[in-house]
Nucleic acid binder design. Structure first.
Lengths: 208, 208
DNA sequence: TTGACAATAGACCGACTGGTCTATAGAATC
DNA sequence: GATTCTATAGACCAGTCGGTCTATTGTCAA
């Protein structure tokens, strides 16, 4: 996904390049030349597929990231009976990806969110939708696990926030420790939240 | 603090301007011209006080932010008997500042952290130190409250992460709801962590 | 007054930015 | 083959970037 031209169509290559670079350096930190070089595409083709230029491409990358995350969460939810273990698998994957990229690739959402101004309506709208979608996914997973809806929404917000905050700390520390610590505490607590409601869970196992 | 030239010396004005702009738009999102205009200073004076240019000024702003936060946390710790209430006051203040700036001012650390590359040694070093300092402060507060040291360190990491993640979500949502939700859940849980160790707490009151 | 030095002031520069524009290549339809 | 439309290709532009450089001013010591 990160590598050279896997030749899946120019448009998709542009989105993939933008997505990768957004995670590493943010929207203002990269030039169109960086994106074009990484996608092996000339400038004209960018404005052909994305008349809105840099911002429109960034929005596409954000939406692609959400779609990817949704697909992965759905798959995990189908694979694991215990929702907490599904969450654990999700966080483990994030940690692995972070380590594989030498702690340079995190979330493409957080960086753009912090760079954006109130004047950047399009970006803000896309980001609001993206964060809302992810929270909704997690809320569904949690309430399906027996957490009360209102509470589930609160926990989902916390999970998203803690996740982003963990990536930030791991990135500057150059260590997976923060992500590990946060995941451990968070999942432990989430399991507590579920206990009172339902007791029909797997034979209880902490992470490997 | 945010306002016009309060004339506390050019150097401090530059730091204040950089600090404000880092929170709003990040390091790459602002030009030196923005900083200089906001500080009412010509370009020469910047390179006189900060020969390292933009980056050195950013580092100074980061360090100033940490010092400010440390001073505030110390004060809160002295004011409140119940450490959880001190944390509550801390988070309430953050929420208030966020609302007062129309959700545009968050943390100057997170943005720069996400924009920085492994090649930006100076920035990374300053950020690692900054996050480490803040975690240390919170760890101290928590262990003083009776939480076991190792556990306190984990919780501190989670608090910092959740705090940053809350600011991100509130910013794009244009609402204080995420910050409120996260603060509520977090403090509730932290109080749980303390209960088993010590029982000598104030007559238990949730936030106003 | 003179000299030394910190601070202020802004003109200036090459490099690079996002974006536009024209030219060409490829594919599909008639 | 002619025509049309999508896709590719990159030259080009005005504007901005961070940074350097040369004055000029203010201040204290001699």
């Amino acid at each position: 996904m990160t590598s050279i031209d896997d030749v899946p169509g120019t448009r998709d290559r542009l989105i993939a390049a933008m997505s990768d670079l957004l995670q590493r350096r943010g929207l203002h930190g990269i030039g169109l030349s960086d994106v074009l070089a990484q996608a092996h595409a000339p400038k004209g083709v960018l404005y052909h597929h994305f008349p809105g230029g840099k911002v429109e491409l960034a929005v596409a990358a954000i939406q692609a990231a959400v779609a990817y995350m949704k697909a992965r969460l759905d798959r995990l939810q189908a694979t694991h009976d215990d929702p907490v273990q599904a969450l654990r698998a999700w966080l483990d994957h994030a940690q692995k990806q972070l380590e594989q990229s030498d702690f340079e690739r995190g979330s493409p959402l957080a960086t753009v969110a912090l760079e954006s101004t109130a004047a950047d309506h399009v970006l803000r709208q896309a980001l609001a939708q993206a964060f809302g979608d992810i929270r909704e996914l997690l809320t569904g997973l949690l309430s399906q696990a027996g957490v009360m809806p209102v509470r589930a929404a609160q926990l989902a917000t916390l999970m998203v926030g803690a996740y982003e905050g963990a990536l930030i700390q791991s990135r500057v520390a150059g260590s997976a420790q923060p992500v590990r610590d946060i995941a451990d505490v968070l999942l432990e607590w989430v399991r507590c939240e579920m206990k009172p409601k339902t007791d029909q869970q797997e034979p209880e196992s902490t992470h490997p």
